[in-house]
Structure formats: C-alpha cells, structure tokens
Write a protein that binds this DNA or RNA. Structure first.
Lengths: 200, 200, 200, 200
DNA sequence: GAATAAGCGAGACGGTACGTCAAGTCTTCGC
DNA sequence: GCGAAGACTTGACGTACCGTCTCGCTTATTC
C-alpha cells in the first residue's frame, strides 16, 4: 500500500473552495479553457497552488466542479420540471427551442465547450457528468415522456433513452461540430421527426 | 504589412513531411493525445522543431493532417461506396453495425478521440474536417439515401442531412460520452427509428 | 510595543523537547544538514510544527541546541581536564592526536560540518557557540598552558589565546577545506611548531 | 548507461553566462547568500532558469563560478607577486596587514562568507577552490618564502605549506568565528610567531 | 473538583522556490 | 543555402517546505 496522505475534509476552508471555483469559471470565460492554468486560478483566487492540488487531481476536475457548483447543488431534482400542457408536441417544441437558443448563445460557448473537452478526454469525469449533471435533467425529461406514453401520444414500448438521444444528439452534434445552423425551425424538425418515429 | 516570411512549398522536403505525420500518429497511439508534444514528434521524426513550425501552425494541425494523410488522400471520393442491394433497411443495418463495431474497437479509441478534441476546440480545423473528411463520406451516404428515396423507401421530401444526423448522432454521442453500450442491437434500433421517422 | 506572545517555559513539555533535539541529530546524520527540514524534524519527533516554532527561532537554532544538549550540559566545566604529566610537549601531542583522530572520524563529519555552517552564517549562534561550547573547552586548555608557563616551558608573556590559535587553527582549516591529510604526524608537527614559537 | 543529454559548450551564449554570474554576485551582496534563489538570479540576469540548470548543477556552483570569474581568469599566475625587499619580516607584515584589512572590510563580508559556505559543504567545489583560487595564490606566497629560505631567514627544511597554515589559519579562524579582533597588531603578532617557529 | 487556560498533535492555509518540461523563436554548423 | 540540431526565453507544471493559523485534546494550575 502506497499509503497516500489524504487531507481531512472536515478542516477544508469553504471560502477557499468557493474562491477557486469562481476563479476557474471567470478565467474560462475570459481567456478560454485551454489557456487557463492552475497557477492562474490560484493567483486569481488568492490561494496557494497546494490548496488546489490538495483537493483536486487535475485542472479538469476543478473546471468540472466549477460547473457542478454552478448548477446549484439541487439536492433533489425538484424545482425544475418540464411544462406539461397535455400536448407533448407543443411542450417539446417549447423546450427544444429554448435549448437551441441556449446553445446558440455565445456567452455559453466557451464554458460548455470546456466542459465537453473534459468529459470527452477523462472517463472518470464523464461518469461524474452523467451521474450528477446529465441524469437529473434526463429524469425530468423522461417523466414528461412517460406522461405522454400514458396519454397515448408515444408508443407505450418506446425506449425513452433512445427517444432522448434521437431528440437531442443531432442538436448536440451540430453544435459540437458547428456543422449546421441552430434555429427554431431545426428544433421543431427534431421534435417532428422524433414524434413520428415513436408514434404509437 | 508585417510581411510574414512564408516558406516556399515547392521546396518542401517530402521525406520530412511524411516522417512528421507518421511520428505524430505513432505517438498518439503510444502515449495518448494529451501527452504528445511537438518536441517529441520532432525527435521521433528526426527533424528540427523549426521544420514543424514552418509548415503547421499548431500541434492540432499536425495531428489533424496526420489523420488526413491516413485517410488515403482519395482525390475523388471514388472507391468507397455503400452497398446497394435495393433493400435500404438491410443495407443501413449492415453499415451501422460496421460503424458500431469500429467505434467499439479499442484500437481506434485514442486517435479518434484525439481528432475529436481537435475539431471541437478549433473551429478552423472543424471546418477542414467537415470539408475534407466528413463531406466525402456523407456524400456517398446521401447517394445511397437518394436511391432509397427514388425507390419509394424514404419520403421524397426528407432532408437527407437530417436523416444522417438522426441515424448517426445518437451513436456518436453515446461513444463520445460513453453513455451507453454500442451493440449491433443498438445499430439496428437506430436504423428502425430513422426509417420509421422518414417513411414516405 | 508589538507585545509578542511569549510561551511560559515552566509548562514546556520536556518529552517533546528531547524528541525534537534527538530527531534533529538523527536527521542530520542520515540525510545531511542541508536536507533537514523543520517539517521532517517535527514528523520524526511526532510533534506539531508549532511546538518547534514556539521554542526556537530557526532551524539553525534547533540544530545548534541539539549539539549543546549532546555536549552533556556539564553545568560546571568539571569532569574534563587535560592530562598534566609535567611534560607539556607530551601532553599536547596526546591531546592533538586525539583531536586529529576525532576530526578524521567520518561519523563526526556531517554533524560537525552542520554546526560550523550554522555558526559561520549566523553571528548570534556564533556568539552562543563561543560562550557555551568553545569557551569551557578553551578554559581547561588554557589552564594546562598556564601550568606550563609556571613550569618555564612556555614564555611567561605568551598570549594564550594566540597559542591556542596557532595550535588548533591550522588543523581546523585543513579539516574544513579538506586541504591536507589529518595524521598523527601532523598533530605532532603542530605541537612542535607551537612550542618553538612560544618557547621562553 | 543513463545517457544524459549534455549540452554543447561551443554553442553557449556568452552574454547569458556573464549576465548570470554578474546577477549572482550582485544578489549576494544585496540580500545575502542564503536568500539568493536561482529564480532570482535568472530574473535579474534576464535569462531562463533552464539556462542556469543547463550549465550549473546547483546554486553553489553558480556562486562559486561567479567568484572565479571575478578573480580575473589570470591564465598564468603572473602579475601578482609578493613584495620582496629582502626583509621577510617586513614583507610578511605588509602582506598580513593588508589581508587583515581586507577581511575586516564589511564590503567583503557577505560574498566571502558565501564562498566559504559553499566550499565547506560541497567537497567538489572545495577541490575546485583549492585548485583554481587557493593554489595560485599559495604558489606566489611559497615563492617568497623559498627566497627567504635561501637568504637564511627561514629554516631550510621548513614545510612551506605548514608555514602558510600557521601564518594564515589563525586569522582565517578568527574571521570565520568572529572570535577576536582583526587588527594590524594581530597581523604583526602572527608574523612574529611564525618567524620564531620557523627560524633556522 | 470544576473551571480555565496553556501547551500540544495535527494539519490546512497563503506563499516562495524548487527542478523539469515544453512552447515557440533564434543561431550555428554541416552537407 | 537549406535544414538538423539545439540553445535560448518564457511560463506552467506538480512538489517540498516555509511560517502562520486554527482545530480538538490533554494537562496543570487557580479558584
């Protein structure tokens, strides 16, 4: 056993933790992910480098945590629920248009690409991402889809994971590869295609 | 005008160019993309660093070019064509199963992730990727889909770009995020969904 | 007045004090003076760093104290006295040969060099050294020389400090600079030279 | 064979070398040897740290070299010769008084102590010191002493190394340990003692 | 005998410097 | 006269310790 010294989380300085995550987010926005250094994060946060290395294994982990912290630590996934007017098509179009608008917002560009770089190249972070960020969101989406199934608007035997993939993956890929325009029409088209594919 | 010195491509040493691209590919496979340095590529290729900087603007560009070179410099997209048995479902399932198998091959893991990291973070490379690598492949796929349209197996007004996205993006996303298993059944399911969505 | 907090020596933990001095001496022997850190001393002694900083101002002071403690805390200088056979030449040669042997002992090398580094670079410690370690030893040596003066073996007006310097400084310098062999013959030569110089 | 990369001295940048040695000397004078860091030397010299590490193994080696460079690279020891009036006593007193004055000069304090710390704790540097700095000086001193022997002012069989030690070591020790005043009288006393000891 | 205060172990903290690696630029030398 | 080799400045890496600062815990007076 190599017997690595592990720090005692009880003594952790909450003020420093916050300052580090804030600094990380600010720097990503200002200079772009690739140019952010741990040194710069430490300096900006007014913190010793060791305090970062003590609690995070890599720059990626810090950046990732800064997104986690941003997402508000929702404890339970309550508070965010999809609209349910009884019309699944209308509801999905509403949500997809909002998502498209979000992706198209240049303000989100740098941080979200940074997050994606992390989870693509580090499978541990990818697992954390699925667990802590993606899953809660997917769960509320699936809840809405399940309601649609019960209302007979979706095939009862539809694989909801697959439904979500067909709905979102094309949008995600377009954004990631910049391979096409992200418009409200595109959002609508994805909803139409998905509903047609999974109609009862 | 700052009048940047630009080298004369006519004088370029082809032997060095090849050695550099080969070294880049080897190193990515051996140590992983993130740990590859220009220094290491130069050393492995038996070339001065300046010879790399003279012809490529960044590590990403070298890596990207090493993939371009690998894809065989097809000049025209001939030589690769999708099977056409007349049965679009069977043909697509064949192709998708092969694609799934390719993505699942651990041998391709590192280089393809490296390539994706490049094009995600560098929009210039992303444009080149679309132009030089993605487009030719998409063109042959679209040719097969167009044949299906003419055979009445796909809606005549289907947006073929969208068809390809619905078909491939879910698979791509699963692979990128490691968010689910890549199996032959999954390949079939994607084909079924897509055909249902774009049925005439 | 800045009103520095000063600890109450009455409450000092004697067990910790000993553990620290022992640890310091052990570490100097094991890894050499330059590589000894307060952190390592504290860890070895099973003591908090603050307990060292509370009682010593610097690493040098700890090391120095560890030598003081080693020298046995003789209270009064009794117990050690130079041989006095009545023959100053024979007595000095005995003592000088012993000294040469001591310096040549590799076991003493590291610690004594460490001590010398301290007193060379820190004049406070140098003063303490002269007072607490050097003076008592010099006093017994001078006592023997004074007896020799009274016996007419040394000039009555000889400056005994100077006699000791002529006797010991060459040996000390040879050891410090490793500029020549330390042998019994060398010890004898120094005694001969000194006696010739200060003959009545 | 570990096959360490060794730089090619022919390509060494002389301007950088000078800047480093100058910066080292300046910093020792300004802040004291212990507080000089390689980082600070590099910054002051306008040089990358690697350029220091490429050519010197340690801070001590840089500092030592800065003294070597200062001593003027005398090629042959010519140019400096001791006075020879025919009167060894007068000549030695002249030289010793000058030496005492030099040691007492507070301007020389810091650098010479720094040099001594180096050669005391690093036997490699000590050997270089003897070879490159001490020996040439000793040689000219011995030449003068040899003349005195031929003039019958010193015993013909006197060990000149020993003579020099008796003459200089007490002075050196006093300075190093700050154990007594360095005065012209002291210089004279040392000459008197030495001449008496080594009289024919 | 309980209350209180000091010393203590532990170790997290903001820092400085370490010695290493690589980036991208500039220089030299050999073919 | 080009290009390999590699020295240069720069800057970040991750580590080791510095000296300071809480934490609980033990111990030893003081009321």
């Amino acid at each position: 056993m190599p017997e690595v010294k592990k720090p005692n989380p009880a003594r952790r300085n909450e003020r420093s933790r916050h300052a580090i995550l804030d600094a990380a987010r600010e720097l990503i926005r200002e200079v772009g992910y690739a140019k952010v250094s741990i040194e710069a994060i430490a300096a900006r946060a007014g913190v010793g480098k060791q305090t970062i290395y003590r609690w995070w294994p890599s720059k990626g982990a810090v950046v990732f945590d800064s997104f986690l912290a941003l997402s508000g630590d929702p404890e339970e996934g309550e508070g965010m629920a999809l609209p349910d007017t009884g019309d699944i098509e209308a509801d999905l179009k509403l949500v997809m248009r909002a998502t498209v608008a979000e992706f198209a917002d240049p303000h989100f560009e740098a941080p979200i690409r940074a997050l994606n770089l992390e989870i693509i190249s580090d499978s541990d972070l990818a697992a954390q991402y699925r667990e802590k960020l993606a899953r809660p969101v997917e769960d509320v989406k699936k809840a809405r889809l399940r309601a649609a199934q019960q209302a007979g608007q979706l095939a009862a035997d539809a694989d909801l994971d697959l439904v979500l993939e067909v709905l979102y993956a094309p949008l995600y890929q377009r954004w990631l590869h910049r391979s096409g325009p992200l418009t409200a029409e595109y959002a609508d088209a994805l909803v139409d295609v998905t509903l047609k594919a999974f109609r009862p």
